[in-house]
Nucleic acid binder design. Structure first.
Lengths: 353, 353
DNA sequence: TTGAAAGCGCTAACAA
DNA sequence: TTGTTAGCGCTTTCAA
């Protein structure tokens, strides 16, 4: 057909489409008789589109069962609508209230949670960070503060909004929602002192935060004159993380061997505290008569134990929803003024101490 | 500059790049002096590239701190390396062993877990499915089987590999890793019968699977001649999900009010069982002397209670790793022959019954 | 073994 | 309000 003398542009080679069958925005747009971008607007920003077009697009979506590809959307818009959370471990962890409220708060705004487990060993941390950053999440929530310098740098360099939680530090990577473990330690020491206890002890996980809590506890206790005469620290028993009822039981035996006169035990989790109560029951030790028990976390079961467990309540749900708020605010381009929030804690007094 | 008489091709308008600053594969390739696709190969399929090029690319990655954008990769390759898991709720749930092993098994193969909460009400289910399918995960793991027809259809239509868990059905959507709740119910009835119990009862969550378990339990118990003379079913108490120690305590009171002669209680979770033990202790009811207690789930704490709790063990970790295997196999194009796996259960006998 | 070109499905930027 | 065009950053396809 072309006249040979005229320079022509080659016809484009026939398209080799790689599509996998499902409906795309293009199909929906075609069906509705509009341009793809218009269909996109109808779905993401209905106000920017006239009523009849909105109708037609919605109908087309209905008829095709179209589900937007958020990977493609995220790539184009640089907003993945994904938020990553890192917890040491999922099973039996005290962080789940936070994860739960995080998931819910995020879902309410159309964000999805990606879950990563760092383990208590921090060995997989690097691979985990790579997997997370590679997904370009709109935010990352860390349980505890990031201690490795390498990790801090990578996260910072990624430019992703970060929320560290469950702790307090003067130098967060970015944002932080937490509380002071030192403050808990001394508050519990105070609490026990005021209730007449004089020979206190601790059982806690082999975990950096628990260590700081206990140091503060021990320090405050000694300052108040509690503890065996001349002791440099209160009796303590370190158990592996994650904590179990069994560790609590053996912990109490261990403490009693160290000092048969102890009259209070501060446990680094409610599971440990349940173990202490259980062991006391098995041995016929009166609680709180002979030994007071204080847990940490105020899990749902604490109030229902016999005796009901005194525990340090930490509002995990508040941490989760606050973290979600902070990240969503950032993702929407807002500036977050208050980057560090101390959500505090409460000692819930019950029968055990 | 152009001579007017000569037809010219317009210079391309200056590029309006939308890049967000980070390094891309292109940058790495340029630094290494190769084409982007070659850099891609060096990273994803090192064997397909010569040694010197591999070196140069790795060095470039090192120097830039490049982290591949998996959203882009997923879009192009149709493999998101994401797997979604849906649980009713995160906090205090018995499914966490599964989630944990799922996360670990997936991470080992470079997959990441997305977590969704359906709630026990199934109200948010539709929005959740949309959010999940929109991310084009390489697999979806459901806790329990999908009951809504609407949901089944959407999942099926999406073409995503699905694993239903924690139950058995002759008509799974796709694949299934679970066990029979009916079999558990009758096995526990048998178990208690053989240990001399004759007036059995149940406490269970308001949950479809628990209901089937209890029906089978009650049925088998009556067939064995257990239960009050002439009763149509064994005494039972239904409590809200998720189960708590408090519900277990009130459940036992309730059952004793129904029939003061009961000599065994089958609980639909270990938390409930802990509640029963706690209430018994508070009331001075001997366990297992007067009442035997059997839990479900064999959580870590079961063995450490006093008395140690007899419980139906379900290997959540096995469910998780099997589900991961199935999905990864599918994602890699393999055909899964055995689409339904019954992983069974074990009654772990301990002091409580 | 290496590369050029095109496309994954969507949205930002610009234009009408 | 609607559309055109050109990407997002990667991988597939095809060719050398």
């Amino acid at each position: 057909m072309d006249k040979q003398a005229v320079p022509v542009i080659d016809a484009p080679p026939k398209r080799r489409r790689r599509t996998s069958g499902g409906f795309t925005l293009r199909d929906v747009a075609k069906l509705a008789g509009v341009a793809p971008i218009t269909a996109s607007r109808a779905l993401n920003n209905p106000d920017s589109v006239s009523e009849p077009i909105l109708q037609r697009v919605r109908e087309a979506v209905e008829r095709t069962g179209y589900v937007p590809n958020l990977l493609a959307g995220g790539l184009a818009s640089k907003r993945s609508k994904l938020v990553a959370a890192v917890v040491p471990t999922v099973a039996g962890s005290v962080f789940l209230d936070m994860v739960q409220s995080l998931t819910e708060s995020l879902a309410a705004s159309g964000y999805q949670l990606m879950l990563g487990q760092s383990g208590y060993e921090n060995s997989r941390e690097d691979a985990l960070l790579e997997a997370i950053i590679g997904r370009r999440p709109d935010g990352v929530v860390l349980t505890g503060i990031m201690r490795s310098d390498q990790g801090r740098r990578r996260l910072l360099a990624s430019g992703i909004p970060i929320v560290e939680t469950w702790d307090l530090t003067p130098t967060p990577i970015d944002m932080l929602v937490g509380f002071s473990h030192e403050a808990i330690g001394s508050a519990v020491a105070d609490y026990l002192y005021q209730r007449g206890r004089r020979r206190v002890a601790t059982i806690s996980a082999n975990d950096e935060r628990a260590v700081r809590r206990n140091q503060a506890f021990s320090h405050a206790a000694l300052a108040l004159g509690m503890g065996a005469p001349g002791a440099a620290a209160v009796p303590s028993c370190i158990v592996p993380a994650p904590t179990t009822v069994g560790s609590g039981r053996s912990g109490l035996r261990d403490l009693l061997a160290q000092d048969p006169c102890i009259d209070a035990v501060f446990c680094s989790s409610d599971m440990l505290a349940l173990g202490v109560i259980t062991e006391a029951q098995a041995q016929g030790i009166a609680i709180p008569g002979r030994v007071a028990v204080v847990g940490l976390g105020d899990q749902a079961f604490a109030r229902d134990l016999h005796p009901a467990l005194t525990s340090v309540q930490i509002d995990g749900a508040a941490i989760g929803s606050t973290a979600a708020q902070l990240i969503i605010a950032r993702a929407e381009g807002k500036v977050v003024a208050e980057k560090v929030r101390d959500i505090g804690f409460t000692i819930v007094e019950r029968a055990s101490g």
